[in-house]
Design a protein around this nucleic acid. Structure first.
Length: 422
DNA sequence: TCTGGGGTCCTAGGACCC
DNA sequence: TCTGGGGTCCTAGGACCC
């Protein structure tokens, strides 16, 4: 019998903003998406106001002001760092940890029950993370990942649980599943829940009792697996080591619409540089690159244009210079004058480890010999926190850069922003 | 005026091969 | 004139996740 726990940080980004701002303890907090567009995190006071996840801020600006809500731009340097600390602490507490997202991790608790009651173990995790990092978490425990997820949902929703739910007993599973709308099940999104409701499946319990074979025919093998997981049959294992990425995307909406090609060239060059840096961080080389640009789909009566273009390299590369050159050539193909561009992005895929790719005998290798050393120097400088180097193509003015009008300090990752104790 | 970014997996259909 | 069966690979699109 396996046992999983899902540890999920409460309102993670909002909680991060509170760690170094005790004055915000009881004040509602929201965090905005890149470009200060939508609300992507809400403290529980904000949820209680009925403000929904993902709404554009301009639609609720007045409401936020009225309730004295503290507003923050996304500060990924801060969230990423606090996330790493949470995960490290979990590693010290549990036999095996799978980092599932920036604010969630699965733990393998198989065998723990013999040593300590599971709910006590969950409470200990909760207490330790709160004490050591200052981030509140909920813990859900169950015999499969899907049930652990559901247990976590219950831990968050029902406050009298104290934020820890042990769902290892079948009786408790059935009780909770009967109360839970099918949409809350992990892997059942908006489309699927609509289709399921149409055939009379409205609760998680009804889905659990559906025939997996029939569901597989009518829907997919994925949903069949979900049913088995709801029934306590573990189909999804722990992945203790993160699998290597299959693609890397860097895209942004612009702070101001872009109408000049030169500005677009700079933006695209920046996204390439960032994507290439991530690629090297994965120790990978890419053989394919795609560039896309588009106008805003939200503005009515304004001419819309969206296009993308891709290329493959003769051998996998990781050199920012080669990628920028290729990307700008692709941009030449898809650029059209006269539009107000809202967003652009770069994608890399078809990855190889170093030295794995078979070089074409006749074409020879066009790879630069200084590539590895040169890129390593750039990455080291840019990650040192002491300086920043970039290519001329990336531009200097960056008028298109995203809006971040409510940014908090980089408390934990920049020397000059570290809080002082007087 | 103002609407995020970054991923994964599965399936269906077409091209192509023997 | 009659025109099979089985397989792979690739791509686009749809669904989901945080």
């Amino acid at each position: 019998m396996t046992t999983f726990a899902l540890v999920d940080c409460n309102s993670f980004y909002a909680s991060c903003e509170r760690v170094f701002r005790p004055d915000l303890k009881d004040r509602p907090v929201v965090v905005l998406s890149n470009n200060d567009g939508c609300i992507v995190a809400r403290s529980k006071e904000v949820k209680a106001l009925g403000i929904k996840m993902g709404v554009p801020i301009f639609k609720v600006a007045e409401q936020l002001r009225r309730h004295n809500v503290a507003i923050f731009s996304s500060n990924y340097a801060l969230y990423g760092d606090l996330s790493a600390r949470v995960m490290q602490t979990l590693e010290s507490l549990a036999p095996s940890v799978e980092v599932y997202s920036i604010d969630e991790a699965f733990l393998d608790l198989t065998g723990v029950e013999a040593v300590e009651p599971l709910d006590l173990f969950g409470q200990r995790i909760q207490y330790t993370i709160e004490q050591d990092i200052g981030i509140p978490v909920c813990v859900g425990i169950g015999p499969t990942k899907t049930l652990a997820k559901l247990a976590n949902y219950a831990a968050k929703k029902y406050t009298k649980t104290g934020g820890v739910v042990d769902l290892t007993q079948v009786k408790r599973q059935q009780k909770l599943l009967a109360l839970t709308p099918v949409h809350e099940v992990w892997g059942v999104g908006r489309r699927l829940s609509k289709k399921l409701e149409a055939i009379g499946i409205q609760t998680a319990l009804q889905l659990m009792n559906a025939n997996p074979k029939t569901i597989r025919q009518q829907f997919s093998v994925v949903l069949e697996r979900t049913i088995r997981e709801l029934n306590g049959e573990s189909c999804l294992d722990m992945e203790a080591v993160a699998p290597t990425k299959q693609q890397i995307i860097c895209s942004r909406s612009f702070g101001e619409k872009v109408t000049e090609k030169q500005k677009m060239r700079e933006a695209v060059s920046n996204y390439v540089a960032r994507a290439a840096e991530k690629l090297r961080g994965e120790q990978q080389y890419a053989k394919a690159l795609t560039v896309f640009i588009r106008t805003s789909p939200y503005v009515p009566n304004s001419p819309h244009y969206a296009n993308s273009a891709g290329t493959t390299f003769s051998v996998p590369i990781h050199d920012t210079r080669d990628m920028i050159r290729a990307a700008l050539r692709l941009l030449d193909h898809i650029w059209r004058d006269g539009f107000r561009y809202a967003k652009a992005g770069v994608m890399l895929f078809d990855f190889y480890d170093r030295g794995v790719y078979q070089i074409d005998l006749f074409r020879g290798s066009s790879v630069r010999s200084d590539s590895r050393a040169y890129m390593a120097v750039i990455d080291r400088i840019n990650q040192s926190g002491q300086g920043h180097v970039f290519f001329a193509a990336q531009g200097i003015q960056k008028g298109w850069a995203m809006k971040r009008n409510y940014l908090s300090p980089a408390y934990t990752t920049r020397w000059c922003d570290i809080p002082r104790v007087r």
